[in-house]
Amino acid sequence: MTSQAESRARFGVPADAMVFARSVRKSYGSLDVLKGIDLIVPKGSVACIIGPSGSGKSTFLRCINHLEQLTGGVLLVDGEFVGYDLRDGKLYEVKDSLLCKRRADIGMVFQSFNLFSHMTVMENLIEAPTRVRGMSVAEAKASAEVLLARVGLSDKAGRYPRELSGGQQQRVAIARALAMNPKVLLFDEPTSALDPELVGEVLQVMRDLAESGMTMVVVTHEIGFAREVGDDLIFMDEGVIVERGEPREVIANPQSARTREFLSRVL
């Protein structure tokens, strides 16, 4: 039995689950940041996570692509542990090369863009496809051009990141993540570092992505975006999921007092 099949059978992972989290815990020393997260993000759906600062939203995203190691619980992406293989009921840490290969399938977009500042836009886009996936430069460039057109930045291919506005940089960062053809895209407050008038262009790109069927987990403060685009709205506080449901439903009619209080502050 493959590791993937064994995991699916053992934890009862639904066939359509892209992200599957079960009692996910994470602590830094004595600080418990995640205290048992249960969550399923189905393939092709958009999950939006909201919550106050320090509630563990970023930490949870970073656990999904194994930038952080779990303290406890199970976290599977497409039915597979990212950093481990399950064999005969034991978790074996995988080789670095396999970890890299699996991470490449999980795209991440950061609040601070994190474009490689010594590379042009085009170089940013072809770096990982050529180095990690072994694509030829010509092939990678061709698909990078398609992606740049998709985020509306075809004319910026030769620019360095610092020559672009924040909104443009973030759109390049999204294109860079897409260049790896990921199974799922994680967004950590992608518009929080942007001037208000630049937020719209980035949200538009994300909206188009959602429509194209990309599975997305989005940590955001844009309640409007969550309501319109999200299939699920998850409210996190102090390391637990306090409330989860259909976005319109949660926003219009929050069940918990904490959700109500948080929404009243951000709306």
């Binding site: 670095d96 090369s97 890299c100 290969k101 991470r103 994190n114 500042s117 990982a128 990690v132």
Partner: peptide, 27 residues
Amino acid sequence: VPHGQFEAASGLGMSYRQILRRIILPQ
């Protein structure tokens, strides 16, 4: 070199060696 550069590169699946050689050292 800001730590975000390292994270972005790991997120793209680059190995430690590749990150040092291609991303961190040039910057």
